[in-house]
Amino acid sequence: MTTHDLEYDNPNAIEAHNMSVYYGSFRAVKDVSLAIEKNRITALIGPSGCGKSTVLRSFNRMNDLVPSARVEGQVLFHGENIYAPGVDPVNVRRRIGMVFQKPNPFPKSIYENVIYGPRINGWKLSRREMDELVERSLRGAALWDEVKDKLNQNGLSLSGGQQQRLCIARALAVEPEVILMDEPCSALDPISTLKIEELMFELRQHYTIIIVTHNMQQASRASDYTAFFLMDSDRTGQLVEYGSTSQIFQNPKDERTEQYISGQFG
């Protein structure tokens, strides 16, 4: 019996327990405890510098790429602490994918962009299976109809919104369970933003999505749960309030949450 089976009834995809993140001696995030429900969209909001991106990046060990970064506490994925000794961050990232603030397709063809992940993961696929996977991923990212006739074109030749959906397709191709999105719409125009939001609702059926956003309208219309972060006087980020999006936006319990969502600061 694998851990996966044991965790079958666990409604949460990721659980952080007393997680703190340090950059060198600077404590960027303090004591975050947060349970992310499966097949839901959870938004992390808060003013600049409140640590929401840092929290997001701790969920798939992207902070490991910063040499001075260090994480304390636990982040559980299927009941297993991803920061436990012996856990390979490469395996973590293969199951918890990421979409970044700025679209960052590889300077390769659209097809090669999508198939990159499966290739490095060593999936043995026939040409036909690869074609199907590329089509399925691009359809999943609502990009197929726009690019099906030009799969050999360079990914960088697409528009910004298309590039971002290509990055989502690229993340989908490795069939992750969780997709982390770090302000995925901040570089996009309103129409492309709307497309990505619609797409998130589609993806929710099969994936757990955690999205960092600056845009409170986006959090309120496109998420199921919202976590509000704020930094204290030491510039250390903390989780202030976490609940269903409707509760956070209509009936916040914390005074600071109310001030933030009503636009009094930030």
């Binding site: 790429l65 990232r93 293969r94 960052n104 992940g117 993961n121 993340a171 490795v174």
Partner: peptide
């Protein structure tokens, strides 16, 4: 980052 994020 993109490449690492895909588990490279």
């Amino acid at each position: 980052e993109a490449a690492y994020g895909l588990g490279s």
